[in-house]
């Protein structure tokens, strides 16, 4: 991932969409393993890209965000209390906002 794809200011951007405590994640992978979707690195993949501010990657895989069942199991079992489920919702809002602004991208 090239330097210009990383944006340490992203947490600030995401604040508008209610990111909560997601940046506390220490990447243990618990959320991936409990997620009923059983789907690759989801949802940690999204959390990780959010931590790095790799928005391009988030938007590339944005459709995955809507697979989330919002069941809350990841948030309930997250050892860091990072509430990954809430981050997914925030990223949905962020993505919708992006689509609204740049409908053709």
């Amino acid at each position: 991932m090239k330097m210009d794809l990383i944006d340490p200011e992203f947490p600030k951007t995401l604040e508008r969409f209610g990111a909560g405590s997601a940046f506390e994640c220490f990447n243990c992978g618990s959320c991936v393993a409990v997620c009923p979707l059983v789907s690759g690195h989801f949802p940690r993949k999204m959390i990780r890209y959010a931590q790095l501010g790799a928005t391009e990657k988030i938007l590339r895989d944005a459709k995955d965000l809507w697979k989330c069942l919002h069941c809350g199991l990841c948030s309930r079992t997250c050892p860091r209390g990072a509430d990954p489920g809430e981050l997914i919702l925030s990223l949905r809002r962020f993505t919708l906002d992006h689509w609204k602004r740049w409908p053709n991208v």
């Binding site: 330097m3 210009d4 990383i6 990447n27 990780r48 790095l52």
Partner: peptide
């Protein structure tokens, strides 16, 4: 940009090469 860069194969990002 910044005068230096640090590159690493970041195991938290699935082994992707990440430059900072």
């Amino acid at each position: 940009g910044s005068s230096l860069k640090v590159a690493v194969n970041d195991t938290l990002t699935f082994g992707e090469r990440v430059e900072v």
